[in-house]
């Protein structure tokens, strides 16, 4: 869908200053139908990457290739994209409804034709009560929610979110994560950046990890976790006397243990490959 090909970008702090390399030969692919987590510490270059993707800034070298399904011209491509910037600040003197109307009109869609969707999503994201209030009065979480609605209301093919969950309360985070899953089920590709590993682990199926401007992993989340697994299995079984026991065994010993349990008439309740959390893996990758 979108291919990031050997992108490098550096910034100068001032006119005479030395330039700092923010992105170094960054390559990855956003494949259709996935929820892709873009992970990196603060200052790793995530927002810079997204700004290049959105054509807000130009890369020094490399190219961003968009598939034909997104369109040829930049304006056509933008029609297929929903974008929510980091720390959204919207026009403070417009009401939430006016703000949505404004952005919808920019997509050449009549606001009246999406009233049902606006109603549905604002209710789902629990922002419907504040639609007629000035955005000035919105809290950080409310800004994220109205921004999220604005990003999806024109039914984009791909949703690009920059730290959508930062600064949002636990209830809000849960609602936004569920909304991402729902949209993905409907066919929307989601690419979202975060420095909070747990959020990514919960929602995404693919991960791109950026460290100091370099991609250190790009691929399937489960594969990554399994690759870094200890190989041990956690077996939970119930004995004849009803006692439930959980044991951790090495991979090579698991077959023998199961055989023994079956012979002893124990019932096996679960057999799980022990995988580390994404956070542990990321920590190890960075070392």
């Amino acid at each position: 869908m979108i291919k990031f090909n050997k992108i490098s970008k550096s910034f100068k702090s001032d006119f005479w200053g030395k330039s700092n390399l923010i992105l170094n030969d960054v390559s990855f692919e956003i494949e259709s139908g996935n929820i892709i987590g873009f992970l990196g510490a603060n200052g790793a270059g995530k927002t810079t990457t997204l700004k290049i993707l959105m054509d807000f800034i130009k890369q020094d070298s490399g190219e961003v290739v968009f598939s034909k399904e997104l369109g040829d011209k930049r304006t056509e491509i933008n029609r297929s994209i929903g974008y929510l910037p980091e720390h959204p600040y919207f026009y403070p003197d417009l009401s939430g409804r006016e703000f949505l109307k404004f952005l919808i009109e920019l997509n050449d869609i009549k606001f009246e034709s999406v009233l049902r969707e606006v109603d549905e999503w604002t209710k789902k994201l629990k922002i419907d009560h504040a639609l007629n209030r000035k955005i000035r009065s919105y809290s950080k979480g409310m800004l994220q929610r109205i921004g999220f609605v604005a990003a999806i209301i024109h039914k984009p093919k791909i949703l690009i979110l920059d730290e959508p969950l930062s600064g949002v309360d636990p209830v809000g985070r849960s609602i936004l994560k569920q909304a991402m899953r729902d949209l993905n089920k409907e066919g929307t590709t989601i690419f979202f950046s975060s420095h909070i590993v747990a959020d990514l682990e919960e929602v995404c199926n693919r991960v791109i990890i950026l460290e100091k401007g370099v991609v250190i992993y790009s691929g399937d989340k489960v594969e990554l976790l399994e690759k870094h697994s200890s190989g041990n299995y956690k077996v939970t079984y119930r004995q004849e006397d009803g006692l439930s026991i959980t044991k951790t065994v090495l991979s090579k010993d698991k077959d023998q243990l199961i055989l023994n349990l079956v012979n002893n008439s124990a019932s096996i309740e679960s057999l799980i490959l022990e995988t580390p959390s994404l956070e542990d893996v990321v920590y190890n990758l960075k070392k």
Partner: peptide
């Protein structure tokens, strides 16, 4: 400064 233009320029607007 307020990043409000990002929402507008992410639309089909030159």
């Amino acid at each position: 400064e307020n990043r409000t233009l990002y929402m507008v320029l992410s639309r089909p607007v030159g």
